[in-house]
Amino acid sequence: MEALKQADSNIVIWLNQWVGEYRVLDQVVEVVVSDYFTPVTLALSLLWLWFATRDPGKRMTTQRAVITAIASLAIANLVVLMMNDFYFRPRPFTEMQLNLLFYRPTDSSFPANPAALSFAIAFSILQTRRGAGAILLGIAAIWSLSRVYAGVFYLSDVAAGAAIGVTTVLCMNFLLRWLDPVPTAVLRVGKALHLA
C-alpha cells in the first residue's frame, strides 16, 4: 500500500515538474482544467448528438444514450459525494511542494468527481456511438490527466473516479432496462413535439 501511495505521489511530482516550463502549455492547461471548459464541452456534445443524428433508428438509440448519460452523471456525482462523507484524502498540493495551475479545492481528493462525471458521459455514448464516444473518452482522459498535471489530484483519484463513472453507466443500463417505460415515454413525447 505504501509503495502504491509513493508511486502515486511520484507520478504527480513527475507530471507537475513541467509546470512553468512551457508558458503556452500552461495557458492551455489552465483553460482545460477549469471547472467550466470540459463540462460545458461534454454537455454541448450531448446537445449536438440529440439533434444531429440523421437516421431515425440511430437517432433513437443515440437519444437513449444521452438520457443514460444524464442519469449516470447525476448518480455518479451522488456516489462521489457519499464517498467523500466517509473518506477524506488530502489534495496533493497540501502534502507536496507543487506548482498549482488551479485554485486550492478544500474537498476530498479521492475519488475525483470530474473523472467520474466525464467518464460517465463518455462511456454512455461509447456504447452506441463508437466514434463520438471515443472522442468524448479522449476529452475525459485529457481533463482528468490535466488535473493531475495541475497538482490537484493523484492518478489513483482519477482512476477511481473513472471506474465509478463506468460502473454507474453499467448499473444505469440495467436500471433503465427495468424502467424502460420512462425513457420510452420521454422520447415519445419528444417525438410528438418534434423535439426528438
Partner: peptide
C-alpha cells in the same frame, strides 16, 4: 462564446465562493 468567456476574466475561481459548484453549474446549464 468560449473565447469571450475564457479571455475576458480569470475563470479558475474556487467553486465554493466566487465560482459555481457542480449543482449550480448543472442548474444554470
Amino acid at each position: 462564446s468560449f473565447i469571450w468567456f475564457f479571455t475576458s476574466e480569470p475563470r479558475n475561481l474556487p467553486d465554493d465562493t466566487l465560482g459555481l459548484d457542480g449543482n449550480r453549474q448543472a442548474g444554470f446549464y
